[in-house]
Computed example of a mutant assay.
Amino acid sequence: MHSIMISLAIFASSVMFSTTTLADDRYIQVSGAGMIQAMPDYLQVNLNVSATAANLKQAKQQVDRAMKSLLKTTEALNITETDIDAAQIRNHAQYDWVNNRREYRGEQVTRDVSITLRDKEQYAELAHQLLMIDEVQIHGSQLKFNDRQSLKNQAFAKAVKAAFAKALLMAEASDNELGKVLMIQEENAHAPQPMMAMAKAMSADESAAPAPMLIQKQNIEARVIVRYRLK
């Protein structure tokens, strides 16, 4: 029994496949990719409120004032407190190096804040208002889905269909007939969560209208490896 090794590359589908004979177990193994596009349902804005002062009390007072300004902003945008997580706060001493000596500069207090923004259209205004608070630094915003797993499942279904189509093509091209599935598994796919960030210098003029944040449909990808028996 001769081994059959065929390799085809189809750029449009980004699917790799090969046929192999191992003893009496003749099979074909393919990897297929599937992708769907969907508009995110909401955003998670990640930021911190931080201040450095001569002592811990003063630094904490600055952070508290900034937090109150932040909460006034979210209240004006009808963002509920249940969509604001600000439970983490920390402090540590600050030092400067002068003439190869460490000199105490003061205390820094930092409060981490995460805001769930249900109305995506408010993102530009929210970021604009928050960046007017000196103690606020926005680290980025994550685009989120209410049911990401359902979207992922749709991408998986496409990936399996793509794998089957290529396996069928491979079998026919090598004068073989496709049999039952011997193995199917998920293949790791590098699909980082899209991030959005705004620089502090974006709006130096508080009266300037904020630039719109152009949120597009996001790619949800899945990859599978499928092994079929050859009859």
Rank of each mutant, 00 (worst) to 15 (best):
D96R: 04
V181T: 14
E186D: 14
I184R: 09
Q108R: 13
M198A: 13
A157D: 12
V98K: 14
M183N: 14
V136K: 03
A157Y: 10
V113P: 06
R148W: 14
R101K: 12
Q154H: 04
Y95C: 06
L168P: 02
M202P: 00
R111F: 01
S207H: 14
Q94A: 10
A204G: 10
L169I: 02
Q94C: 08
P192K: 02
R105C: 06
K144D: 01
L178R: 05
H139L: 03
Y95A: 12
Q108F: 05
I115E: 05
M213L: 14
Q149G: 03
Y104N: 07
L169C: 02
V98P: 03
N99R: 11
R102M: 12
L117C: 03
R102L: 15
K161S: 10
A157L: 08
N99K: 07
Y123E: 10
K161P: 02
Q129D: 10
H190F: 13
S203W: 15
A167T: 01
L126Q: 04
A173G: 12
N153W: 07
Q185F: 03
A204N: 12
D205V: 09
R101W: 09
Q185V: 09
M132E: 08
Q142K: 12
V109E: 04
K200R: 12
H92W: 11
D112M: 08
Y123C: 11
V160G: 03
I115Y: 04
E121C: 05
V113R: 00
A201W: 12
A93C: 06
A208I: 01
D134A: 09
Q122M: 07
A165N: 13
L117N: 02
T110S: 15
R111I: 05
Q154P: 02
K144C: 07
L182S: 09
K166S: 11
L168M: 11
D175M: 03
L126A: 06
K144N: 06
M196W: 13
L131E: 06
K158V: 05
A204D: 15
W97A: 09
A165H: 10
L143I: 05
M198G: 05
N100H: 07
A127N: 12
E172P: 00
M195G: 07
M213G: 08
A124C: 01
R90C: 05
D147N: 14
L130I: 01
S141D: 07
F156Y: 15
V113A: 02
A197G: 04
L117T: 08
R90T: 13
P212T: 00
V109S: 03
K166D: 15
E206P: 11
K158G: 05
A162P: 00
Q108H: 02
V136Q: 02
R90D: 15
A204Y: 09
K161F: 06
Y95G: 03
S114V: 13
Q122A: 03
Q137M: 07
E172T: 08
Q185Y: 07
L214T: 13
A189D: 11
A171D: 08
D175A: 06
S114D: 05
M183F: 14
A173I: 02
L117I: 09
K120C: 07
E187N: 07
M170R: 04
W97L: 14
L117D: 01
A93P: 00
L182P: 02
A159N: 06
L151T: 08
Q129N: 10
S114F: 02
L178S: 08
Q193K: 10
Q149M: 06
M195S: 10
E172M: 05
V113C: 06
V160N: 12
F156N: 13
K144A: 06
L126W: 00
V181A: 12
